[in-house]
């Protein structure tokens, strides 16, 4: 038992974080929110070059073999930097697709995929090159997409899809859903950690009554609670990646999303009015924390998964 990152994992995360920190992701998000995908696609190519999508694809399809732990680490970084686009959906597609050529194009970053599953909307149907629908009969492609509906997170552009050609009747649904849920959890954790960092920086420099507001106990304790919630979500996410046990993945999803959302509420409150503006970059993380809660498994669906499997031995 050793539940800490090894040197290689630390190096991978460090390199990805460094690349993203230099990519001015807030500008990319704002363009993406207006349907201008150029800078987002350029960043997508750099993510592919860093190996992010290869972590979800088998070696014979150009990937590294499915590597859930590294995927979780990558998605924590993507969340920290609010990278836009159908990231989770592309991971799910890489697992679902039976056709090597399509998967190779996902791995190389040439193709962005989205997937509709369990609800009417697919993320970024307008930006995706490959639109998939998971319906009871199997995995279908969709030719076009419905009009873009705005999400509470302006960076998430939702569209309906209509199932077209059947690709396969028996896609590896369970595996795809587990990885989608895991990467959403990891992304939410990254969003929460970034919200905490930004808010800590803000309350250290914002002064009222002649002192930093971060010296007030009422402020400190809210941030202490946010840190506690996030630090208890982190090992759940890593362990879920190690076991891929449905209960662990569901527990990670609900805990990471609730911790990130609670941190968003705290971040908004402690920033005050400036945090309530669309113009201030904090909004990019605040709105995503809300949207990720219900993506790929609502809190109550996740809790039901945990309750169903309780009583079975872990590990």
């Amino acid at each position: 038992m050793r539940l800490v990152l090894d040197d290689e994992q630390r190096a991978f995360t460090g390199a990805l974080e460094k690349m993203l920190a230099g990519a001015d992701t807030p500008s990319v998000v704002r363009e993406w929110s207006h349907g201008a995908h150029g800078s987002g696609r350029a960043l997508w190519g750099r993510l592919a070059a860093a190996g992010v999508f290869a972590l979800a694809a088998p070696e014979e399809y150009g990937g590294f073999g499915v590597r859930p732990v590294e995927l979780a680490l990558a998605f924590m970084a993507l969340g920290r930097h609010v990278v836009p686009g159908p990231l989770v959906e592309t991971v799910a597609a890489a697992v679902l697709l039976p056709t090597p050529n399509l998967v190779k194009r996902l791995v190389s970053g040439e193709t962005l995929a989205t997937v509709a599953y369990g609800g009417p909307y697919a993320l970024d149907g307008d930006a995706a090159d490959l639109r998939l629908v998971l319906a009871p009969g199997g995995l279908h492609t969709a030719t076009g997409h419905g009009p873009v509906r705005p999400s509470l997170d302006p960076a998430r552009r939702l569209t309906t899809l209509t199932p077209g050609d059947l690709l396969t009747t028996e896609p590896p649904l369970a595996q795809a859903l587990l990885l989608a849920r895991l990467t959403t959890a990891a992304q939410a954790l990254g969003v929460g950690l970034a919200l905490l960092d930004r808010t800590v920086s803000y309350v250290r420099q914002r002064t009222q009554f002649g002192v930093p507001v971060g010296s007030f106990q009422a402020v400190k304790h809210q941030l202490a609670d946010a840190r506690t919630a996030l630090e208890f979500a982190r090992p759940l996410v890593l362990a879920a990646a190690l076991t891929l046990d449905p209960a662990d993945v569901a527990a990670a999803k609900v805990t990471a999303c609730e911790a990130a959302y609670a941190t968003a509420r705290t971040a908004l409150q402690l920033h005050g009015a400036i945090g309530y503006t669309a113009e201030y970059d904090l909004s990019l993380w605040l709105t995503k924390a809300r949207a990720l809660r219900t993506a790929w498994g609502s809190p109550e669906e996740c809790r039901d998964t945990v309750l169903l499997s309780a009583g079975d031995p872990h590990c």
Partner: peptide, 15 residues
Amino acid sequence: QRDIIAERLLGLPKG
């Protein structure tokens, strides 16, 4: 404990 978390883990000023 929350004061310790805020001051020693998050680096907030003592008050």
